[in-house]
Design a protein around this nucleic acid. Structure first.
Lengths: 294, 294
DNA sequence: CATCTATTGTGAGTATTTGCACAGAGAGGG
DNA sequence: CCCTCTCTGTGCAAATACTCACAATAGATG
């Protein structure tokens, strides 16, 4: 039973009762149908049909095959309907991944997206390791830094993530507010724990600050934010935190060199699907409205 | 979804996770697998797999297909087992047809056959019209007269059905017993109702008897037998009736020209099956033992 | 009873599919 | 860090399967 097409042919012959009728339905020549039946019977070692001039009638084995193949035909038809429909429907899972630091940006957007497309179940993957689109781990990824070069990925720019240097009123009260880029010596900073990262603002930190100035070190974006709010030091935060925490003060005008490009990445095999396109467009609209300007 | 082989290929790819692995299982080249997947995705308009250097991972649509195709694979395997097994098993229905007059011969044989193969359900078709093997109405037919010439039928001789002229004691008591072939005038006979039949003993009756001598006419073999037993007249009965009714007397030695050839007919498509062969052999053994000699 | 139509069955030519060889790309190991 | 191994992807040649044409048979029909 290693050739499902022959089963399908036999099914149509059993259903129609004639080779010619089956050939019409299948859209092939009747000689092809005869050869399929002969091959299948040869492999099974059992006659499936009795031949006579008025057509083929199924034997017991043929009747058995008819029942099984009819069920298969139904199931394949339903499958085809589901698959073709699902291609245009925005439903099922939508898996998004990004660096942990993006959670504050993405969570509200994904919430709104789910509200607009109630059929969708949104999963947001974030963690230590990079989830890979190539393995189907996620449909959409948000990446920062240099433009991703993976071959099978569709990469589009989402704009720049603008950062500013913020300090809390409690910090300014104790240490004062720097007057400008030249007045940072002696100030305390909140920064990342690792120096291997290549984000643009980190380069600036290494160039303009002494290592001992970074008194609070963490990899966690939320922890950074909380540390700045608590007054542990001056820290880089996205410009839009002033929406949630208007008490924070920008200690100096944001420099362009601090901002990093944001990339919206999808796998080429999924990029064309309606579901992914719906999310991508939704995300781009919101990004343009919320991030880039403010 | 008009190519079940492509579905089967996609199923193996989803199961194995790699094109190469699926190609090994299917016994085809991996390029063929790739082309099948591409064709199927093209027809469905949806990506079933995400391609990467380490293999293929199924999308949601691919997962759906995997489930359906796995069920199909299971069902086909079971079907194959049933069909291949049923080819060698003596089970299911065995349909036998013959002229009504054979019922007395065949019924005990079929009963014994069923006892030896309890898995078999024996159906015995008999009636006015001829049941045709070509249409699958019966597996085995018993025919009398000239050798059947149907193209698709396997015909083998089962020997001659020997008939004798019998009379009951009550008839002999009233009308006497003919002394021989020359002493039949004035005797009463039990015979067939129709004259169109071509059985050899009918020809003899037409040649040697006046029509008015046939006083009891019936097409039914049982009725003929009962009429002879009741003394309605002299009648042609198979020689073996003396087993069941030893009181009947043969009024004259049986002539060879009375006997007709018996043919055992099977359809060529079913002749090779174990079930049919089992019955054919069983029938030939019993025929040799019961009919030909006695 | 002759004819007509619908069906199966088979041989030959053609077209599509398949197999092979090689290239490219990651992943893992020493 | 390089090397190797596996897996995917593609152009080209061969094999297989398909289509076409014709023959034959058996009902159907007038």
């Amino acid at each position: 039973m290693d050739n499902w097409d022959e089963v399908r042919t036999a099914f149509q012959v059993a259903r129609m009762g004639t080779v010619s009728g089956a050939a019409d339905v299948l859209g092939v020549h009747h000689a092809t149908v005869i050869r399929h039946i002969d091959a299948l019977e040869g492999k099974l070692g059992v006659k499936l049909f009795q031949r006579h001039a008025r057509g083929y009638t199924a034997t017991e084995a043929g009747e058995d095959l008819l029942l099984v193949a009819k069920a298969t035909d139904d199931q394949f038809s339903q499958l085809e309907g589901r698959i073709k429909g699902s291609g245009d429907a925005v439903s099922g899972e939508l898996v998004v991944t990004s660096l942990e630091s993006m959670a504050r940006l993405l969570a509200p957007i994904m919430t709104d997206f789910q509200a607009e497309y109630p059929e969708v179940i949104v999963r947001y993957l974030t963690g230590a390791r990079l989830f890979r689109l190539e393995y189907g781990e996620a449909h959409v990824a948000l990446r920062a830094g240099p433009k991703p070069q993976e071959l099978d990925n569709v990469v589009q720019s989402l704009g720049r993530l603008r950062l500013g240097l913020f300090a809390s009123p409690s910090y300014i009260e104790r240490h004062g507010k720097p007057s400008g880029a030249d007045d940072l010596a002696g100030h305390r900073f909140v920064g990342p724990d690792e120096t291997r990262l290549r984000a643009p603002f980190l380069t600036w930190m290494k160039d303009n600050l002494k290592p001992e100035q970074i008194v609070f070190r963490t990899m966690d974006a939320i922890a950074t934010e909380q540390a700045v709010i608590a007054g542990a030091g001056i820290g880089f935060l996205p410009l839009w935190v002033s929406h949630d925490h208007p008490e924070l003060q920008e200690v100096m005008p944001a420099l362009d060199e601090w901002s990093g490009e944001l990339w919206l990445v999808t796998h080429v095999d999924l990029h064309r699907t309606t579901k992914v396109q719906a999310f991508v467009n939704f995300l781009k609209d919101r990004a343009a409205a919320d991030w880039v300007c403010s």
